[in-house]
Design a protein around this nucleic acid. Sequence first.
DNA 1: GGGTAGTATGTGGTCACTCACTTACTTTAG
DNA 2: CTAAAGTAAGTGAGTGACCACATACTACCC
Lengths: 198, 198
Amino acid sequence: MNTSRNRPPLAPPRKEEIIDRTFELVRERGFAGLRMRQIADKVGVTEGALYRHFPSKEAILLALVDRMEGRLLAPIRQIAANSDLSPKQKLEEILRHHLLTVIETRSLPILLLSEASFSEHEELRVRMRRLLSSYLGILESIARETGTTKGFAPRELAVLLLGLPAAVALTQRLLPDEALAERLIGPVAAQFIGLVAE
Amino acid sequence: MNTSRNRPPLAPPRKEEIIDRTFELVRERGFAGLRMRQIADKVGVTEGALYRHFPSKEAILLALVDRMEGRLLAPIRQIAANSDLSPKQKLEEILRHHLLTVIETRSLPILLLSEASFSEHEELRVRMRRLLSSYLGILESIARETGTTKGFAPRELAVLLLGLPAAVALTQRLLPDEALAERLIGPVAAQFIGLVAE
DNA sequence: GGGTAGTATGTGGTCACTCACTTACTTTAG
DNA sequence: CTAAAGTAAGTGAGTGACCACATACTACCC
């Protein structure tokens, strides 16, 4: 038996690679301009080969949303469940995680959300609604644990907190400014939390 | 001479109507899904007729951006130039105007911004960058007039203030909630300004 | 030698845009 | 006043490019 052969069973195979490359394409060019041809070229196969692994383009997009959800929402759920943190600390860590994700993925979460909200794929819109709903729900319930929220209702606070990553996503996509981005992720985010929550 | 004949010279003709109908289509279905066919159907002519008035689809989209700019940015410039208002009042009015526009146009400004940031039409991306740049610039210079901005640099404050309309746009598009929207436009916006500016 | 991954080559449909021609007005010349 | 000329707006039938997806065939690996 060939022990030197490194099976790639956990670092999963083509399927994962296809999603990876698609992720990169969407990050640079967005949803609307994505073509099966581009994915195939980037993976280094022909279009037909993609259909060995996914039944349709929509299936690839849905897998991409899963990926995004894992990267954005899963860590946020963990932070929210961490009982070592005060509500304020939770909000701060969530905000920081969201902002970091926005920067690393070139604003993908927010832009996906808005592009997908127009998609003709019903399933995609449903998933995006769910994602946003979960996100706001998590922030809302933390807001309820928090002492004072400066008179904002929990839902209102949740929307306010979504605002910073949303604004950062838009400005950094169109007017990149690394120094500004770092200030926003760091001190600005922290102080912003300080203003709206005790 | 027929005095009762109401010439329609100022309420301009087809061209304006085409932009109006396109505006409605984009508001409901977004940029990416827009087809010349749909515009023609909505105006009540054939596709060919559209090309009497605009040389290309892109030209229609650019005219649409002009329309959006007139609706969003022009009033904001006026508010900023109104010397009867304190800086804080200016920020408050600008924020309210932006939020109202977002609600009336079903989140169009923000979503246009993100969809267009991926467009293959270079000119469109340039225009969107300019629009965002102007918007942030106006807020920035008001921030400079303001006494205290709670330690935020002017540019940082501008991004923070963009956040609320951005978040409202996303949530209202995907999870419409009229009562929440009204609270956000009214008391929440006012209180938010109170927090970040003196 | 059978299943998996791949290629080469379609195919039907859609889209922005074109074009020859018509229709309804308006302007102008005699 | 009228007929000829000019023009703005529109029609309907393309056209070529592109795209998601399909089908037939092939290389490779246990």
